[in-house]
Design a protein around this nucleic acid. Structure first.
Length: 306
DNA sequence: AACCGCAACAACCGCAAAGGG
DNA sequence: TCCCTTTGCGGTTGTTGCGGT
């Protein structure tokens, strides 16, 4: 594990949000060299970040196969169920949600599910996960849990990284079910939140990102298969493709929970439809296609090689 | 129009485990 | 076996936008 060759002078690392340029540098580097010693990545990639930050950025946003926004009802149930079973073992929970990162699951829990579960728990008893669910849901949850418990990697013991397991799930089961992403009556209250447009930094395009930005990348050079797969992907903004793959915030113009907002979700799907990465249902990447797109290399976290 | 509070997400921080020398 | 470094994980903070007043 030690990486003596990665010795580097201490330096002032940049912090804060990642710019598209930084993302591209990191992406380019990993495309060229694969994953290795993270501590060496910043210097070699020309980034003023520490390795930890690079790793996090890659895992959470740049890594292919990620799915962003829109926790389906099933995903929510898995999170609630597993959280009740495992506690805050986000990486283990994320293992069972292909394309989701532990950070995303954690954030979703902390910002939304926890309150909901606590509400339900205080209203009606000690097993919020169960109380919360409809009979049909419980059935599916049981099935899910059983699958989880018998799948070999679940719960305790597994030392596989979440990323690894994500990919295992992706490759073994293909696209996660996006069952009824828009039909979610339980969240009606939450839905009252309007869709929000995220503009996290000056460099981030707004909804008008359709207009090519000056920093447009030639993403096809980096992800050549994406064009082949989707047919006519000519991203007007490189970050857009990044979002197709990773859900980076550049194009996350809609509220992540907007699947609760039918109108907004349709907007998202429509907005992205031309890029081919969206699947009907709004916002989910077709992970099978992602497999095709990135089939040339392993997407496992530990041994990504190109 | 301005201010405030809230919600959501991205990223950082600290700790522990793992592995090499 | 110990020490050092890297990696992974979970908790927490910071930033941003929106709605309400």
């Amino acid at each position: 594990m030690g990486c003596r060759s990665c010795d580097k002078p201490k330096m002032n690392y940049r912090k804060g949000l990642w710019s598209p340029e930084e993302d591209q540098r990191l992406r380019d580097y990993i495309l060229k060299h694969g994953l290795g010693c993270w501590s060496a990545v910043p210097a070699k990639a020309g980034l003023q970040r520490n390795g930890k930050s690079c790793r996090l950025r890659w895992i959470n946003y740049l890594r292919p196969g990620l799915k962003r926004g829109m926790f389906s009802q099933e995903e929510e149930d898995v999170v609630i169920n597993l959280q009740a079973k495992l506690g805050n073992k986000w990486s283990q929970i994320a293992m069972h949600l292909p394309g989701r990162t532990d950070n995303e699951v954690k954030n979703y829990w902390n910002s939304y599910l926890k309150k909901r579960v606590m509400q339900l728990g205080s209203n009606s008893g000690s097993n919020p996960a169960s109380k919360n669910a409809s009979p049909e849901l419980l059935t599916s949850m049981s099935a899910t849990t059983e699958l989880i418990m018998t799948s070999g990697g679940g719960g305790g013991g597994s030392t596989a990284t979440s990323t690894h397991d994500h990919d295992a799930n992706i490759s073994s089961s293909g696209a996660i079910s996006a069952t009824e992403p828009f039909v979610d009556h339980q969240h009606e209250q939450h839905h009252q939140q309007q869709a929000r447009n995220y503009v996290f930094a000056d460099w981030m395009p707004t909804a008008a990102a359709a207009a090519p930005g000056p920093e447009s990348y030639s993403m096809s050079a980096h992800w050549p298969a994406s064009t082949a797969s989707s047919g006519n992907v000519t991203p007007s903004h490189g970050a857009f493709v990044g979002d197709q793959m990773s859900g980076s915030s550049y194009a996350a113009l809609q509220h992540p929970h907007q699947h609760h907002h039918h109108q907004s979700a349709v907007t998202v799907a429509g907005a992205h439809a031309s890029a081919g990465g969206m699947v009907a249902g709004g916002g989910y990447f077709d992970l099978l296609n992602m497999g095709d797109i990135y089939g040339g290399f392993s997407t496992t976290n530990d041994d990504l090689l190109f």
